[in-house]
Design a protein around this nucleic acid. Structure first.
Lengths: 212, 212
DNA sequence: GTCTATATACAGATAGAC
DNA sequence: GTCTATCTGTATATAGAC
């Protein structure tokens, strides 16, 4: 078994990958040169090419690594009520954003590029986003059918609006100084108004009756 | 008056500026080379340097030009009621986004860069965003004081949530194929639920009374 | 004002010694 | 595996003719 020896000697590759992941996330693909990666990882450019065939492959590896923590997020919402499940999901989203600020910023800026590349990694993120949205819709609809929420609730639209608000709170954090409009308060307000609406069984009954 | 002759001869400069504005908006700063600008504007690279001292100055000029349409947006909401004013503002925002997709995308990606440059143009956009948010808050608060909206409405938070939703709807358009979740429906739903909440005078009175 | 030609720097990538 | 040295392309920017 002569292979055992090379298991942990790959610290250089690790260093390169970590540095590249960081720089790509912070600066984007074009603005990050392999010279810079080599300099900050304290290796030679040639070594980068020994481990990764091209800048593109290095980028893809970095993407894959950035993406990893995105999949622990499978929701274990066992015996909770619908309202608690929705709250839990919203909090999970918010927490996730905060522990992954850099990569979220990364993927968001990827989304904005007009490049034609379908970008395997990016599509996984979008897929994740949609599945998150669908989970919300399912839970809300389940609550509607079980009578926990109003009968006239459009689960799909509610989920869409929640996602929009969450996404908007996200970019607000990128735009303003983090101190300004504290997103935690917005999240609270979002939840508060959401359930106020979902459970507003009194009022005028089918009060939302406008000419659709 | 020997100066009059040179008034419209600067079509080359115009061409350069227009091309650069377009390319910067579509591809960003780094991915746009002056060679490309020169090629597409059908001038020589040297001419670009005659008109603009550096790539950076060209970029700033392009930014300024991109920014221009952002200021016609002064709201003329004369004799409208508060509800109509809010609706009008939301629609204005939405329309504006749609007629300026490219530059909005541009500024959004600018926001995401970690570059240290305060970027004169970008700060104007942020300022605009805040003033828009403040207008919303003012109108809502005015409506609250005049009894059009509930007395327990927190105008600032409502405005923040509206802006978050609008921003979220915006990035949803960048993320998904434009056909998927049609933002127009989301805007409708936003408005509907918003006013449902702002004018929900019946229900349980100070129903929102949770331990703050 | 507009061009051609060129200087200079740095990008991604390769060859080959150790 | 890691390095130095080098190739090749292209970037920003300048010099100087017209």
């Amino acid at each position: 078994m002569p292979d055992e020896g090379q298991l942990e000697i790959q610290e250089a590759r690790e260093k390169i990958l970590a540095t590249a992941t960081d720089l790509f996330a912070k600066q984007g693909y074009d603005s990050t040169s392999l010279s810079q990666v080599a300099r900050e990882a304290k290796v030679s450019k040639a070594l980068i090419f020994w481990h990764f065939d091209s800048k593109d492959e290095l980028y893809r590896s970095a993407l894959r690594r950035t993406l990893e923590p995105y999949f622990i997020n499978v929701n274990e919402l066992t015996g909770l009520g619908e309202r608690e499940q929705v709250e839990r999901l919203i909090d999970q989203f918010y927490d996730f954003i905060h522990t992954n600020v850099y990569s979220v910023r990364f993927f968001l800026s990827l989304t904005l590029r007009v490049e034609q590349s379908p970008d395997e990694g990016l599509s996984r993120v979008l897929e994740l986003y949609r599945s998150f949205r669908n989970s919300l819709a399912d839970i809300i609809d389940s609550g509607r059918r079980r009578g926990v929420f109003c009968s006239d609730v459009d689960a799909s639209r509610e989920a869409g609006l929640i996602m929009a608000a969450l996404g908007g709170i996200l970019i607000q954090q990128f735009m303003s100084d983090p101190s300004s409009n504290e997103p935690a308060a917005l999240i609270e307000h979002l939840k508060q108004t959401l359930f106020q609406r979902l459970t507003a069984n009194g009022a005028e009954g089918t009060h939302a009756g406008r000419p659709e």
